[in-house]
């Protein structure tokens, strides 16, 4: 049995012509799973449905064998780090965790030890008595992950966790997530391909509420193989080249520009696609199909 099983899930909003989720079917197993998609693809809607914050219009999802119709039982099993996590600014870090631990039904006697352990895990022990408003963006996200783990969840759902973090914090945060994924299911939603590339090889790609791809990163790259090329173009011809090709990378040196681009076919030299290029190729194909 899969940890998360999503079947034919659809979510429509009034006043919006297209569904936020369109007959989505997906299975997620233990470990880290990356859900890639651009802004507005439906990732956050899916996260909110899985965390029982929103109701699907049709379809169903089961988390650890529990259907969405039992929201409290699901909330007991999951941890959630929402997009743009923040908390009461005047509360201290330790008090915020104590408050959320109480809401998460963590026994009072276990709270002190649990909070101390989590603060150590996310390297915030020294900030236990610091007010939330005084935390940096990275620290706030680490507090976010600590609160999501407060009930020792079987499933951790994180929505765009690295947005706004500097490179150092981003790497630290990704490592943290990878550590936690060894013992549980982590569903990582992001539009940043490098976050997924650095943490997992199991991914799904969402666009316009539809699942374009699910499988390994290698499979996605294989699908794009033969559709990514490189070309060396004189500087004066670069502008016109860019107008006629879908560029994935451009490096200009002296009087020449080195391009990598995506195309169905080309007379230029084919190269091994990166994950980002494979993702772009998939999006291009989807849009080219008229969706």
């Amino acid at each position: 049995m899969h940890t998360i099983e999503i079947t034919n899930l659809t979510k429509t909003y009034r006043k919006k012509p297209t569904p936020a989720l369109d007959h989505l079917t997906l299975a997620v197993d233990k470990g880290m799973f990356g859900l890639l998609g651009k802004n507005g693809a439906g990732k956050s809607t899916l996260m909110k449905i899985l965390t029982t914050l929103e109701q699907p219009t049709t379809g169903n999802a089961v988390v650890c064998g529990i259907p969405l119709s039992q929201p409290q039982a699901i909330r007991d099993l999951i941890g959630y780090l929402p997009q743009n996590f923040a908390f009461y600014p005047n509360m201290t870090v330790a008090n915020a965790l104590a408050y959320l631990a109480t809401l998460a039904n963590v026994p009072v006697r276990a709270q002190r030890q649990r909070i101390a352990q989590l603060l150590a895990d996310v390297n915030l022990t020294a900030k236990a008595h610091t007010k939330v408003r005084q935390l940096s963006g990275g620290m706030l996200q680490r507090l976010g992950i600590a609160q999501a783990l407060i009930n020792n969840p079987q499933v951790l759902i994180v929505d765009e966790p690295t947005a706004g973090l500097d490179p150092e914090e981003r790497i630290r945060f990704r490592n943290l997530l990878t550590d936690f994924s060894s013992e549980r299911t982590v569903l990582l939603s992001t539009h940043i391909v490098s976050d997924v590339e650095a943490t997992t090889n199991q991914i799904g790609v969402l666009d316009h509420g539809q699942l374009l791809f699910t499988g390994t990163t290698n499979a996605l790259i294989t699908a794009a193989t033969g559709h990514v090329f490189q070309a060396l173009v004189p500087r004066e011809a670069a502008v016109q080249f860019k107008q006629t090709h879908q560029i994935s990378e451009q490096v200009t040196q002296a009087d020449q520009s080195h391009f990598r681009f995506i195309a169905a076919s080309s007379s230029q030299t084919p190269v091994t696609p990166t994950l980002e290029e494979a993702y772009l190729y998939l999006q291009t194909q989807h849009e080219g199909a008229g969706v």
């Binding site: 909330r75 929402p82 809401l103």
Partner: peptide, 18 residues
């Protein structure tokens, strides 16, 4: 309104307590 102002609502609502 502090829940909304401090963007704490989604975090709180995802917890066990009703």
């Amino acid at each position: 309104d502090a829940d909304r102002r401090s963007r704490a609502l989604a975090t709180i609502q995802s917890k066990f307590a009703s």
